[in-house]
């Protein structure tokens, strides 16, 4: 159980790292948002699942209740994070942020 929990947390850390690299390396606003939004939702959920499993290591009714609460956080992150990303992207579209294109590369 501990090994599964640990590997879930490590996988979450990997996706966080990928998201940060994308945030630093991508050329414009939309691609950065793409990296940050997707990687962060998945990584946060993986870390939270790992923590919930770790909490279940000494099984009792109380630790099961705490794990269910942690799982509820995962559900809400999974709903709220993509919505927030969508709202930010739409706001950028409305005020006219230009996406990156080939001709930006040549300058």
């Amino acid at each position: 159980m501990l090994w599964i929990a640990g590997s879930l947390v490590v996988a979450g850390m990997f996706f966080f790292a990928v998201g940060v690299i994308g945030l630093l390396r991508f050329p414009d606003f939309y691609t950065r948002l793409h990296a940050a939004g997707k990687c962060d939702s998945l990584a946060a959920v993986l870390v939270i699942l790992g923590v919930a499993l770790y909490n279940l290591a000494d099984f009792s009714l109380a630790s099961l209740l705490v794990s269910l609460k942690i799982l509820a956080i995962a559900v809400f992150v999974f709903v709220a994070s993509p919505t927030a990303t969508h709202a930010i992207a739409e706001a950028a579209l409305v005020i006219g942020v230009e996406p990156w294109s080939k001709k930006d590369q040549e300058q």
Partner: peptide, 20 residues
């Protein structure tokens, strides 16, 4: 896409409303 987003009032988005 930009015209479509500007056509409706600000914040009038099905995704945001459903999740809220």
């Amino acid at each position: 896409l930009q015209e479509r987003a500007k056509g409706r009032p600000a914040g009038d988005s099905l995704i945001i409303r459903t999740s809220v």
